[in-house]
């Protein structure tokens, strides 16, 4: 079992738990666990090149937030140096590091989410209670690549008719605007046709049926139970003030090992599962 094999409901709840804790718990321990967990999982899921590109982007975001925060907030008791007579404080810098850490952890977890949660799973989650919403989402995601192809076709057409795109920004802008307007008309025409053909085929007359094979198995239940247990443990500790940090005016971090361990395990679950699966695969190959 790896994360992408579980039932959509249990993996959705897993992501919600991790994201809520990462976004709203104010504690360095949780941010560190979350960043490390997301990095490990992304390393397993993505190709090396993609991974390093993402890593670079994340580090840039992180550094940008960390360095700019002390420029805005001058609270704190240990000034490092002064800019225009205002203090650049250590506390504000560390607060920025944490803020940036939480931001980049959220970005990375959403990357993992979009790798694991494919279109079929989204449709399953939205399709039951909100079928129209699900239809709009799937149709839109189907339209976008078609629009790309159409855009290229219109570009080529313009090139053939002698309207070249030059390199200057204004020219490029003008050309893109023209192409975009043409694209609007053609897309709407095809949308109306789609709508009419949907109506002709009896859209909305019968009961909607679904073509997916997700079954809530025993493993899903166990996974869900473990997630909720770990998450609520971390939340209760954070609610009672055992996992929190004060930055202004002085840094005071209280992170007890037990709640930190709970959250670390929660973040590491996908990585552990991936490693287990790949070990199993290696072992099976060795047997053959």
């Amino acid at each position: 079992m790896r994360l992408s094999v579980f039932h959509p409901v249990s993996s959705l709840i897993y992501f919600a738990a991790v994201l809520i804790a990462t976004m709203f718990c104010f504690s360095p321990a949780i941010q560190i666990c979350s960043v490390v967990g997301a990095l490990l999982e992304l390393f397993m899921l993505e190709s090396k090149r993609e991974f390093f590109r993402n890593l670079r982007f994340t580090v840039v975001v992180w550094l940008a937030v960390a360095v700019t925060n002390p420029l805005f907030s001058h609270k704190g008791v240990t000034p490092l140096f002064f800019i225009n007579g205002r203090a650049f404080t250590l506390e504000a810098l560390l607060y920025g590091v944490m803020l940036g850490g939480s931001l980049s952890a959220v970005i990375m977890w959403f990357k993992v989410f979009s790798k694991v949660f494919d279109r079929e799973r989204l449709l399953y989650i939205f399709g039951r209670k909100t079928p129209k919403l699900a239809l709009i989402i799937t149709m839109t995601r189907g339209f976008v690549p078609k629009l790309k192809a159409q855009y290229r076709r219109i570009c080529d057409g313009r090139k053939c008719s002698g309207t070249y795109m030059s390199e200057s920004r204004i020219e490029r802008l003008k050309a893109s605007c023209g192409i975009f307007t043409a694209l609007c008309s053609s897309t709407l025409e095809s949308a109306v046709q789609t709508g009419m053909s949907m109506k002709a085929r009896g859209f909305g007359t019968g009961k909607r049926s679904f073509a997916h094979s997700f079954k809530f198995r025993f493993g899903d239940g166990v996974f869900l139970f473990v997630c909720i247990l770990l998450f609520s443990a971390a939340m209760i500790y954070s609610g009672t003030g055992k996992l929190r940090a004060d930055f202004y005016p002085r840094i005071a971090v209280s992170s007890e090992p037990l709640p930190m361990l709970c959250f670390a395990v929660l973040c590491a679950i996908p990585f552990i599962l991936e490693v287990k699966e790949s070990l199993k695969w290696k072992f099976c190959l060795a047997k053959i």
């Binding site: 239809l135 949308a191 859209f203």
Partner: peptide
Amino acid sequence: SAQLAIISAMTALSVF
């Protein structure tokens, strides 16, 4: 159905 199709076409256009 036509309205649904148009909503998704407009959304796709603005995403693109």
